[in-house]
Design a protein around this nucleic acid. Structure first.
Lengths: 147, 147
DNA sequence: ATGTTTGCAAACCCTTTGCAGGCCC
DNA sequence: GGGCCTGCAAAGGGTTTGCAAACAT
């Protein structure tokens, strides 16, 4: 299993792209991060690190990472989040409708069922997204307290 | 089990809304449709029917249907699709990355597992979205033919 | 030198909002 | 007639693109 960052570099070379510091920084930030990064968060984090990298570059690099097969996107409330495909092999999400918190989980049984369903439809799965929306522990408690 | 359209009317009354033809038309179109409607498609279909209803009204009505619990939204490639919650009790989706076609399926076993996971996290599920992305039968065949 | 990358600003797309006139009750 | 509804146009938020200057090879 090769290093994701190396995989990204190889992808760039294969695509005829030149190397550049801003792109490296964005890719490294993303690949070393465990959470789902929105473009905004990525931009902020880079700024905190003293890097002054424009939004367009962040966008362009994150989209490159998707093309390279290293990232996946999920959309939540109109915003796109990029998630590291290499880090945790697979995880799905519980998203709280009230506070927006996300909890990750993974379930091999669900994965197996998904594979079975796809096969039944002659469908070749490339990625998937499973999100359960509702109220998290805390927000649910609050709600009950009010009643 | 009451008629979804009646449920919508009751919801409107309860919310202190007056009735209006444009809203009725949009709601009826949506509730009698089996597919996932984008705002654009809904707008077009209404136009085909000779109705001249503005985008805002379509948006407002579809969002009302969500509030009424009759519709759910899924986001695909930056566009929001509204889906009839009453029609098929539950279905998840296979979405082709190439031609965009969506295939519906439902799987009680997956639903059960989801419930179990949510309980484990003290999470109260309100809705969920499961999408498998990949290549449909036809696009997959094409791809193989080219090789 | 040639071609790619960058940051900025402008353009873009989908969605929401403000508003004047119209419709419902 | 008061208040909600409509359609239009304008604003809004996130994302992409055009461009001139900077950079890599």
């Amino acid at each position: 299993m090769i290093d994701p960052y190396e995989k990204f570099q190889r992808f760039c070379i294969a695509a005829g792209l030149k190397s550049s510091k801003p792109r490296e920084k964005v890719a490294q930030l993303f690949l070393s991060s465990q959470e789902h990064l929105s473009v905004f968060r990525a931009y902020e984090k880079l700024k905190e690190q003293g890097e002054n990298i424009g939004y367009s570059t962040v966008y362009r690099t994150l989209n490159l990472l998707v093309k390279a097969g290293l990232a996946e996107t999920i959309t939540y409330q109109g915003e796109t989040y990029y998630e590291n495909k290499a880090a945790n092999l697979h995880h799905d999400h519980l998203v709280c409708n009230k506070c927006g918190k996300t909890i990750e989980f993974s379930c091999a049984s669900i994965e197996r069922l998904q594979t079975a369903i796809a096969r039944k439809h002659n469908f070749q799965v490339q990625s998937h997204s499973l999100i359960l929306y509702g109220l998290c522990k805390d927000c649910n408690k609050e709600k009950k307290a009010k009643q």
